[in-house]
């Protein structure tokens, strides 16, 4: 039973990682850049929940909706202001800009909210007992929501016009333009979706643990990025798989008191091993050379 509990915990934190990893992977696939400020969008989502639900007393679900909107607008704004002017610039310049953006968001948050933790308690979540097993309601909510979101996203990409345009742009931007696809618009949509998913991740994170501070998104961001690379950066199913794998490994590592302190080290070692065996990640495709 302990085993099953650990697995469920792993699945729920893993689906939070997957939510974040999806943002990294979609932006990478479509804009061909690593958006290092992505983790900090989660943090902005966390503070939005704090301001709306805790300070203003808005219903938590409405607060979630607000967080989603704020994050999506923020993601799109970051792209327009910081990244779009650098299209075609060297990848290094873009990467440094993204890192700078990450620090900018953290500093602004600290200026506004200070460095002390803000507590965001949204619901009174208890535990439910199934047989001899205790499952926290948080786990169930996270798992259920993520499953719905990931299924919805997969269907969106496969079966809608815009979804297919996203695949086309990620495969070949020039050919996509020749189909009449407005690449800038698709990039905007991608940033909006990725950032909205980050808001969900922030929501799941405060459900699990209420303190919010300016570095809320830093570690989960790095882990989710690692998860996206493990799964194969650019691949949507890869990000889901990588995120869940990451959560399960973390959950099992933390149950063992000897191994627990090395959890992060273990996670990154897995990354290294997987990249040695499969340089493009588990589900990543080798880029076919163009003739």
């Amino acid at each position: 039973m302990k085993l099953l509990e650990t697995l469920l915990n792993g699945l729920s934190s893993g689906s939070t990682y997957a939510m974040i990893a999806l943002g990294y992977t979609m932006v990478y696939g479509i804009a061909k850049m690593l958006n290092f400020a992505h983790g900090d969008v989660i943090m902005v989502g966390g503070y939005t929940l704090y301001v709306s639900a805790v300070m203003m007393g808005i219903h938590p679900l409405l607060a979630l909706l607000l967080a989603i909107i704020c994050c999506a607008v923020l993601g799109v704004t970051i792209e327009k202001l910081a990244y779009k002017p650098l299209r075609g610039a060297s990848p290094l310049a873009v990467l440094i800009t993204a890192i700078g953006m990450s620090y900018l968001l953290q500093s602004v948050a600290q200026m506004i909210f200070g460095s002390a933790d803000r507590m965001v308690r949204l619901f009174d979540l208890g535990r439910i007992t199934v047989g001899s097993m205790q499952i926290s309601t948080y786990t169930i909510i996270t798992l259920a929501c993520s499953a719905v979101i990931m299924a919805g996203l997969s269907l969106f990409v496969k079966y809608t016009r815009i979804g297919r345009a996203m695949i086309a742009v990620s495969e070949d931007k020039d050919a996509a333009q020749l189909m009449g696809i407005n690449v800038n618009f698709i990039i905007t949509i991608t940033f909006a979706i990725g950032s909205a998913l980050a808001a969900f991740a922030g929501f799941f994170m405060v459900l699990k643990s209420p303190p919010v501070n300016s570095t809320l998104g830093a570690m989960p961001g790095i882990k989710a990025f690692t998860a996206a690379v493990i799964g194969g950066i650019g691949s949507i199913p890869g990000a889901m798989l990588g995120g869940i794998l990451m959560g399960i490994v973390e959950s099992f590592a933390q149950t063992n008191p000897v191994i627990a302190p090395f959890t992060v080290a273990i996670e990154f070692s897995i990354l290294i091993v997987i990249l040695l065996v499969r340089p493009s990640g588990i589900l990543g495709k080798k880029r076919r050379e163009k003739v």
Partner: peptide, 25 residues
């Protein structure tokens, strides 16, 4: 419109989906 050098079809999509992309507009 143009058929680019090296064809540049969408390799991961099916034939039918490629044609759907062609009819995007």
């Amino acid at each position: 419109t143009q058929v680019p050098e090296g064809r540049r079809i969408f390799q991961e999509l099916t034939v039918y989906e490629n044609l759907m992309m062609g009819a995007y507009t």
